[in-house]
Computed example of a mutant assay.
Amino acid sequence: MLEDTGERVIPERMKITNGLLLEHLARYHFASDYVSGRVLDFASGSGYGSHIIAKMCKKKVTEVIGIDIDKAALDYAKKTYYHPLTTYHEGDVTDPQLPDELGQFDSIMSFETIEHVKQEKQFLSNIYNMLKPNGTLILSTPFGEGRGVPCGSPFHVHQLTVPEFKALFGEYASTEFYFQKGVLIEPDSSFNTNKHYPLGIVVCKK
């Protein structure tokens, strides 16, 4: 049975007013403007996000692959979020063999993943190697006190600062940064210094 850890998003078990649910849904709806072709949902969890993309983007997406390390989550996704464009597979986002096993993608999404990963460089290297030339990455993370500093969540290795987050994507041809608070996602250009933005999103073009 899929365990509810308090951090995992399982829409069927949550109220429609749940802030965690709403902000996660908002990111996938945001990503729907950027994805096309063969899509990877890296750390796909219970599968609702892969399903949103397959349903919303069926005219421009050829395949959606969800990868997660949690077999129970994958089993739940397969039963709850079937779509003919979508498949779910077990895998570790830091496995160096993944690029050879999965091939390349036109679009990669990874939401609220990097803060869980100790092998950050391998994770980012896998993403880069699995993204086709001119492909698009959409990735998000919560902000905190910085790399190596313990944070309030027992599930997170740490939470990056805004400058640390922005420094991760220098190898890409272009990057656009966004800030999220609840369902509101604003571009970096409209950053309001008087407002606290707990989450960041980057859209990268290889």
Rank of each mutant, 00 (worst) to 15 (best):
D188S: 09
F191H: 15
L102H: 05
N192Q: 14
L139G: 01
L21F: 06
G6C: 04
A72Q: 07
G148L: 06
S140N: 09
I16M: 08
L2S: 04
M130Y: 07
C57N: 00
Q119V: 15
N18H: 11
V35Y: 00
K118L: 14
G135P: 14
G148C: 13
D92N: 12
G144E: 14
F165R: 03
E23T: 08
K58Y: 00
P96A: 11
V61H: 08
K59F: 10
S44Q: 01
V117Q: 07
A43H: 01
E112R: 02
E23R: 05
S50H: 03
D75V: 13
Y81I: 02
A73M: 11
T87L: 07
G135N: 11
K205H: 09
L21E: 05
F105Q: 10
K121D: 15
L22N: 01
T141I: 03
N18I: 01
L168S: 12
T62S: 13
N129V: 09
D68F: 08
T175S: 12
Y81E: 04
T87N: 10
P11S: 12
I65N: 02
A72N: 13
K132R: 14
R38P: 01
Y81M: 08
V149S: 06
L139C: 08
A73W: 03
K121S: 12
G91H: 07
Y128V: 00
E176I: 12
E23C: 05
L74P: 07
I127F: 15
L25M: 14
A77R: 01
L20E: 02
P150T: 14
S189V: 14
I16L: 13
L21K: 03
L40C: 03
Y88D: 03
E12Y: 09
Y197C: 12
Y34N: 02
G182N: 10
F169E: 07
S50R: 02
E12I: 05
I10F: 02
M1E: 01
T80K: 08
I65C: 12
A173M: 09
